[in-house]
Design a protein around this nucleic acid. Structure first.
Length: 111
DNA sequence: CGACTGACGCCGA
DNA sequence: CTCGGCGCCAGTC
C-alpha cells in the first residue's frame, strides 16, 4: 500500500473532538521521522475521500498554518465545531491530545 | 544529479 | 515564550 493511503487511513482513526501531531500520525502509520510527509499527504487528499485533516497539529499543539491565514481560520472553525478549543492559533494537547488505545489501533489500523 | 522547499521536530540561547 | 539553527525527507526544478 501507498504511504499516502496509510497516512490518510491513520488520520481517519483520530476520534472526533481530539487532535494528533504530524509526528504522531507518522509513527502510527509506520513511517517514523516522516512528519513532513504527513503534511504533504494531507495537502493531497482526493476530493472523494473524507479525511479529518484539521485534527492534525504540530507537536506543540499549534496549527501549522500562519495565524490569521485563510487555512488556519478554516482549521480553527472545523476544530471548534467539534468542541476543540483553539486559542491564539493553538490547542492544549494536555486537554485534547489523542492518546490512542492499543486495542483500538489494532482493530482500526488494518493497513 | 545537486539545490531548494516545506501542513515538521527538537534543542539551545 | 520566542527565535534561530539544524536534522530530516519526499517532491520539484
Amino acid at each position: 500500500m501507498d504511504n499516502y493511503q496509510r497516512i490518510w487511513r491513520t488520520v481517519q482513526v483520530i476520534p472526533e473532538g481530539r487532535v494528533a501531531s504530524y509526528g504522531q500520525v507518522a509513527d502510527l502509520a509506520g513511517l517514523p521521522r516522516r512528519a513532513r510527509l504527513v503534511g504533504r499527504a494531507l495537502g493531497a487528499v482526493p476530493d472523494d475521500l473524507v479525511v479529518p485533516w484539521y485534527r492534525v497539529l504540530r507537536s506543540d499543539g499549534r496549527i501549522a498554518f500562519p495565524p490569521g491565514s485563510p487555512q488556519a481560520e478554516r482549521q480553527k472553525q472545523h476544530l471548534q465545531e467539534e468542541g476543540v478549543v483553539v486559542l491564539n492559533n493553538r490547542v492544549r494537547l494536555k486537554e485534547f491530545g489523542w492518546r490512542p488505545d492499543l486495542a483500538e489501533l489494532l482493530m482500526r489500523l488494518e493497513f
